[in-house]
Design a protein around this nucleic acid. Structure first.
Lengths: 266, 266
DNA sequence: TTGCTCCTCACGTCACGTGAGGTGGC
DNA sequence: TTGCTCCTCACGTCACGTGAGGTGGC
C-alpha cells in the first residue's frame, strides 16, 4: 500500500492529478482508512501506468474512461491506439488546411477580394407554393435538407432552393426553413407543403462564396437605414447558383439573392 | 449605427461573442446610449471583419489584442500571419511526433520494454564537497543548470552531476538542487559551494531513459516497506551516464542512481 | 510539540453558449 | 398591451494548478 505522495513519486503523476482521477473514477485508491487517507496498491499502480501512458498520447479523461470500459484484451487496446492515430492525423490535416488558408490570405492581401458592387432593389415578390423543412441549427446544415428534398421531390421542383430565416441576428443555432417552389402538392412526414405569401421586399444579389455573404447583409441594412425603410422577418436567401450535390464548383460564381420583407406603416 | 443584432448579421459574429469582445476590449461599440444599448459604426465594422478573420485563422483573443496593438501597416499584418503559420506548423510537428510515439508503442507492445532488474542496496555514502544551484520548477529544466555549471566550473568538476530533491511527491514545480562534486572551492553569485553530509542510504541503479524512472522509485519504496526502513529527504539522482551537451545518445544506455537517506531511530 | 502529509473546498483557466430575470421602445 | 430586442449576471466547459484552512499521526 502506498500513500498518495509515494504513489505520486512511483507513477510520475502529481498528487493533484491523482485526486482528480479518483474523483473522475479512473484511478481509485484500493481503500481509504477512517482518516480518509487514500491508499493505493499494485492494481492501482497498473491502472496508473496505463492512464499516464494514455495521457501522454493525448487521450482526454473521457476517452480514457471509454478505453477502460472497452479494452479487455491487448487487441482492443491496439485498436484504440489506431483510432487515436486517425484522430490526430485528422487534426493534422485541419492544421494543414489552416496554414494553406493563411498563406492564401497573405497572397490575396494586395489583390483584395473582388467585391461585386450590386445594387439593393425594391421589388414585389409573388406568392408561391413551396415544399419546406424546418430545423434549428447551423446554417451549413441546410445542405443535408436540400439533398433530402432533391431526392424526394425530383421533377416536382420548380425553382431555386431558398432558406427562410426567423432570427434577426447571426446565430449558430438559427431557426431555418429550407424551401423550394413546387408544381404539385407533395406530402410526407418530414416535408410540408405551404403557400409563401406575396411580399414587397428589399433585395440584393450577392455574387461569391458564403463566407463573404455577411457583406451583402450590410448592403441591405445600410440601404434600409438610409431610406428609412422598416424590414421584417423571415428573411430569405435564394440560391440561384450554388454548389452541386457532388461538386462544389467555384464559389466565386455562386449567386445568392437576399430578400427582406418591407413593413409598410400606413 | 447598428444595433447589436444587426451588427451580428452583417459581421457573422454571434451576439454573445460581440458582448464578449466588448468586455475584452477588442471590438467596442462606437457609443452606448442611456438605455445601455450598444451601437456600432463603420469603424467597428472594419475592426470586426479583422477580428473575425483572425479567429478563423485560430488566433486566440490575447493574440488578437497583440495584433491590434502592434499592427499599424499591412506589412506588420503579413508578418504576424507568417509568425502564426510557424506556430501552427510547430503544432503539426508535435502531433506528428505524437503519432510516431503511438506507432512505436503499438510495435513495442509485444516485446515490452526491457526492464533491467537491478537490486536495491544499502550503502554508506561519504560526505563530499559540491558546487550547487537551487531552483524551483520542472525536472527537465535541470539541463540548463547543468550546462551553465559545466561551462563555469570546467576542469574543477570531480564527479557526476546529481540532483537533490526536497519533495516527497512527483511535482511539476519541484524544489531541486543541482549539484556536482568539485575539487576546489568556487564561488559565484549563482553557484554556491557546500559540503553534502555523509549518509547511510538505500540506492538503486536505473538503466534507461528518464521517462521510465518512476519504476525505479517503486523498487526503492517497495524495498523500504518490506524491510521496515524509514527514509528521509532530500533524495538524490546521480547521473552516471546521461545525455551529452549536444547529442542525446541512446536513452536505453543511460545509468542513473537513485539514493534515499535512511533515518535511523535508535 | 512542531512539522509533515494528508484532506476538502473554492477559485481560475478559454471563449464563449445557455439560460434566467429584467428593462426600454414601438 | 404584447412581443421583441436589448441588457446584466451566473453557471458550465477541461484537467487539473494554486492556495486556504483544517485534521491526524509520529
Amino acid at each position: 500500500m502506498y500513500k498518495i505522495g509515494e504513489f505520486s513519486k512511483i507513477t510520475g503523476i502529481t498528487v493533484k492529478a491523482l485526486r482528480y482521477y479518483d474523483k473522475e473514477n479512473i484511478i481509485c485508491p484500493a481503500n481509504r482508512d477512517e482518516s480518509s487517507y487514500r491508499f493505493y496498491n499494485e492494481d492501482s499502480y497498473k491502472r496508473a501506468l496505463m492512464v499516464k501512458q494514455l495521457r501522454t498520447y493525448d487521450f482526454s479523461i473521457s476517452e480514457i474512461k471509454d478505453v477502460i470500459k472497452m479494452c479487455v484484451s491487448d487487441y482492443d487496446f491496439n485498436y484504440v491506439l489506431s483510432e487515436k492515430i486517425s484522430l490526430i492525423e485528422a487534426e493534422i490535416n485541419e492544421k494543414r488546411k489552416l496554414v494553406d488558408k493563411i498563406k492564401d490570405a497573405k497572397k490575396l492581401k494586395s489583390e483584395e477580394k473582388v467585391m461585386h458592387d450590386n445594387r439593393v432593389i425594391i421589388k414585389d415578390i409573388p406568392s408561391m407554393k413551396v415544399a419546406s423543412m424546418k430545423y434549428q441549427g447551423r446554417y451549413e446544415e441546410c445542405g443535408n435538407y436540400i439533398s433530402q428534398m432533391t431526392k424526394k421531390l425530383g421533377g416536382k421542383i420548380a425553382g431555386s432552393f431558398m432558406n427562410l430565416y426567423y432570427d434577426l441576428d447571426y446565430n449558430e443555432n438559427a431557426n431555418v426553413e429550407v424551401c423550394v417552389p413546387i408544381k404539385k402538392e407533395y406530402n410526407d412526414k418530414d416535408i410540408q407543403c405551404r403557400q409563401v405569401g406575396a411580399i414587397k421586399a428589399v433585395t440584393y444579389i450577392h455574387q461569391g462564396g458564403y463566407d463573404t455573404i455577411s457583406q451583402a447583409y450590410k448592403k441591405i441594412f445600410d440601404f434600409v437605414k438610409e431610406n428609412d425603410i422598416e424590414i421584417g422577418l423571415p428573411s430569405r436567401e435564394v440560391y440561384h447558383k450554388g454548389p452541386g450535390m457532388i461538386f462544389k464548383g467555384n464559389p466565386n460564381r455562386y449567386v445568392t439573392e437576399i430578400i427582406y420583407p418591407i413593413i409598410e406603416n400606413d
